[in-house]
Nucleic acid binder design. Structure first.
Lengths: 211, 211
DNA sequence: CTATTTTCATAACGGTCACTATTGAAATCG
DNA sequence: CGATTTCAATAGTGACCGTTATGAAAATAG
């Protein structure tokens, strides 16, 4: 008869919580960007020493990749939720934009989207990281495109709608909102921007109105 | 009787052309961003040594400020030209967007806008530079706003038009196009995006059509 | 207990960062 | 000419970069 205790691993247990450490590292990368965040910044904020960081995450780049996944599952999850939960394509898109305006200006974390602004131009040595982040941006646009294509298939949108162009348009809006949020724009200002953007969707502003 | 020769300065003349040096430095900053461009990268591309760079420009940051002005007077000048030369607000905006699509994908220089993407998040030591670049972004939005307000005053646009929101919308579009261009988007893709964006302007896509 | 394994903290690694002291060459001035 | 001024090249500055060797500390296994 075996006891099913959760079988502690062999050696000395680590003294920090990996999830909390990722949260703290995320804030640093979010605020300073990938290149701007030094390992000293990270270990200082995470409350661990450099060898502990390297034992747990391999390298600064490895930690960053873990943080990106952590971001997508946390503060960045609202996008995927909006696109899958809303019944109509237009409703989904509008919810993404409105929630972006709110999330990008929250005071509990740096303003703007972490993926949009963490690493754009960079030294050649960091190009692989920049490429990864660029692929995440492309993935978001692709998510938009799929949702719009689904809306076209469902008859919500005219069949001649260019889903790719619409998706790239939305990607640009989100990207631009992220930068403006970082530059100090308020939620109200971003919502005004969203209202203009939704006009490109045809029909008036706001949610589809009954008539 | 004085001879009016162009009075060469006293000591040994410098052996490099400052304008050409700024051009070369601009390409490096454009490609690698402010933090990603090292002084070694810059001197290597400019064909001068570090002491020459510091004698002529004071510091890396000083050189960057000169390069930003050089950019605005060169590759970035089309925006100001479009906004002042076009007779209507809508025409001016559409020209800015269409020319952005073309300029951002030129093969003679890195894709995207240099001001949009050179330095967003960064180490705290470089925050003054980031603030400067942010103020340039804000200046572009303000230029948009003024042009739209002028269009409202001229009766081209409905008096209830929110010029600030429209301007922020356009700033976001340009910012987003810049990132997508850097990520590899083609001119045709960006023009498709522009067409969608112009729909937010009311009345179908494209230039105002006679009817 | 001893042996083993893993994490911890200290201290340091070579490399690159932005930047400059020094020196000699190249120009103009008197 | 000699004196002066400015530039350019060499060679380095200290500081910080990401990363790691070392050894003590803390847990399990036998």
């Amino acid at each position: 008869m075996k006891i099913v205790t959760p079988t502690r691993p062999r050696g000395r247990p680590r003294e920090f919580d990996e999830t909390k450490a990722l949260d703290l590292a995320m804030m640093v990368f979010w605020r300073l960007g990938y290149e701007g965040a030094s390992v000293a910044d990270l270990t200082g904020a995470m409350g661990i020493t450099a060898p502990s960081l390297y034992a747990a995450f391999g390298s600064k780049e490895g930690l960053y990749r873990r943080v990106l996944a952590h971001y997508q599952a946390g503060p960045g999850a609202f996008t995927w939720a909006a696109l899958t939960e809303e019944p109509t394509a237009r409703g989904a898109i509008e919810r993404v934009l409105r929630e972006s305006a709110r999330v990008f200006t929250r005071r509990k974390h740096p303003h703007g989207c972490m993926i949009s602004t963490a690493i754009l131009r960079c030294a050649e040595a960091h190009q692989p990281v920049a490429d990864l982040v660029a692929s995440l941006r492309a993935g978001a646009v692709e998510l938009f495109r799929e949702r719009i294509a689904r809306g076209i298939a469902a008859g919500e949108l005219p069949p001649e709608t260019d889903a790719g162009a619409m998706a790239r348009f939305l990607g640009a809006i989100v990207q631009g909102m992220s930068v403006q949020a970082q530059d100090g724009a308020s939620e109200a200002e971003l919502l005004g921007l969203v209202e203009v953007a939704m006009r490109a969707w045809g029909g008036g502003a706001g949610r589809p109105r009954a008539r």
